[in-house]
């Protein structure tokens, strides 16, 4: 290391509280793992017993989107709130340096990967009802596709209207609410749906949630409110993300 020995020593001195905390945490974890306790009772049996009523054959999806759909609803809103927080920040005065030309290699990678990403996201969404996969995974991959498009400053995103962006971000969380309230209108509890119509509800919920999560992640990466025109004008046709300059 190029640092002097005295600097390293002072760095070590500064780090000892952290080291102590880590050692304590580790000891606690080891104790919790090794200590004899009551035998853990899993919920696997209960989940299996009511799996047929859930509308899907994957246990994880059944738990996430039916038995404990409340959690997933809140998670959708957490990501939504994240976007709201980022948009409410004052734009940075620092502008990105004018980037070198993206180059043919990057754009051809983008043309190759983005369709494949959408395809794989669709596959994960579809596979989610009977094996691993689902809305969040598919959404993350869609977000990756969005990030790739943004990095290449692709004209595809520059043409995306701001209004469309806002609607797309809202779609997932609010569709979730609509489904939840629709269950109440039919005389059930909030978010309660059962086998015959549950499959449809879960599949549509997952698709909209994945779409919105992907859009939210890409928006988080863009990192600022879209530069739309002022409210009075027709903001639906202004580009959401202009190129960094």
């Amino acid at each position: 290391m190029t640092k002097g020995p005295s600097k390293t020593a002072s760095a070590l001195k500064r780090q000892w509280p952290l080291a102590l905390l880590l050692v304590l945490l580790f000891t606690a974890l080891a104790w919790a793992y090794l200590a004899p306790g009551p035998a853990a009772v899993g919920l696997a049996a209960q989940v299996d017993a009511s799996l047929t009523a859930s509308g899907v054959s994957s246990r994880v999806t059944a738990v996430l989107l039916n038995f404990r759909a409340y959690d997933t609803l809140l998670e959708c809103f957490v990501i939504f709130l994240g976007v709201m927080v980022v948009w409410s920040l004052r734009p940075t005065t620092v502008t990105a340096p004018r980037q070198p030309q993206a180059g043919a290699i990057l754009s051809s990678l983008e043309r190759l990967l983005v369709p494949l990403m959408v395809l794989v996201a669709g596959y994960l969404l579809w596979a989610g009802s009977n094996q691993a996969g689902g809305a969040f995974q598919a959404g993350a991959i869609l977000g990756g596709a969005g990030v790739l498009l943004l990095l290449d400053s692709s004209p595809l995103l520059a043409r995306l209207p701001k209004g469309g962006l806002v609607w797309g971000i809202c779609l997932g969380p609010f569709y979730f609410l609509v489904v939840a309230v629709a269950a109440m209108l039919r005389g059930r509890h909030f978010l309660e749906y059962r086998a015959p119509e549950a499959t449809l509800a879960i599949v549509t919920l997952e698709a909209t949630a994945a779409f919105s999560i992907g859009l939210c992640l890409a928006t988080l990466f863009a990192g600022r409110q879209p530069q739309g025109k002022s409210r009075g004008e027709n903001s639906a046709h202004s580009p959401a993300w202009e190129e960094d300059s």
Binding site: V60, L124, Q131, A132, G133, G134, F136, Q137, A140, I141, G143, G144, V147, L151, L217, L220, F221
Partner: peptide, 19 residues
């Protein structure tokens, strides 16, 4: 936990890096 592995692979390897 393949579900989590999928999510972590997508988020951890690609998105957090870029973000």
């Amino acid at each position: 936990a393949p579900d989590l592995a999928l999510a972590e692979a997508a988020i951890g390897s690609g998105l957090t890096g870029a973000l």
